[in-house]
Write a protein that binds this DNA or RNA. Structure first.
Lengths: 109, 109
DNA sequence: GGCCGTCAGGAACATTTTGTTCCGCATGGA
DNA sequence: TCCATGCGGAACAAAATGTTCCTGACGGCC
């Protein structure tokens, strides 16, 4: 599945993430995840789902079934935000929301 | 991935196909495909695509990804985050992302 | 200059997973 | 009864995976 390996690489780059960072977010050793990116190994199905979530994607997309979605600069930013949110605890997520809302309120003053 | 195994079984039944028949159509030995259905083994990614095609489905479906609109406490938070993000400028959005990533980094230390 | 921290990848090895083979058992025609 | 078909257990050989160790590149910092 060269397509899969390439999509891993491309998608992480789109989100501005290093492969090492993706590995940490997924909860894998850097080396192990690197094997997926290089195409040497393939993840099992449960891991495929986790990776897709961290990359704010889906198995269909990563496997080249679905056409890539909107990739405008704004869409990328939203994806990046959701990618972080996906790996945060509920409490930290609430903190992040509060901060974002604070920024918004400040702009309106 | 018990969900996957169950979906294989259910989908084949929906189509009125025996597992042995699906195995033949995919081009696998009956025994090998049976291992996927029982959940003992998992197919590699290329095989996942072939199986999905024969079952007129997709990896997303077979992996149980396309479920209904989730409205758990977590999903509400994500919705709130996106609601704020939607009305932020690109610059402020980047700031929010940076803050969220900083929280993440802090938790790892 | 040296020293860190991060990222990335090669190679070898131990381990796990997978695929095959052989077997048995049940069912439903012909 | 005999045969075809579907299904599944068990054991083994083969293949894929995950880990470990090591190397190098790059940028920031003192």
């Amino acid at each position: 599945m060269d397509i899969f390996a390439n999509n891993l690489k491309d998608r992480a780059h789109e989100l501005g993430l290093s492969n090492a960072e993706v590995a940490r977010r997924v909860g894998l050793s850097e080396r192990r995840y690197a094997h997926y990116v290089s195409g040497r190994n393939e993840p099992d199905l449960a891991m495929l789902l986790k990776i897709a979530e961290v990359l704010q994607s889906t198995p269909n997309e990563l496997l080249g079934l679905d056409r890539e979605k909107a990739d405008g600069p704004r869409d990328i930013l939203i994806d990046r935000l959701n990618a972080v949110a996906a790996v945060m605890t509920d409490d930290d997520l609430q903190a992040a929301i509060a901060q974002a809302e604070a920024i918004l309120a400040m702009r309106r003053k």
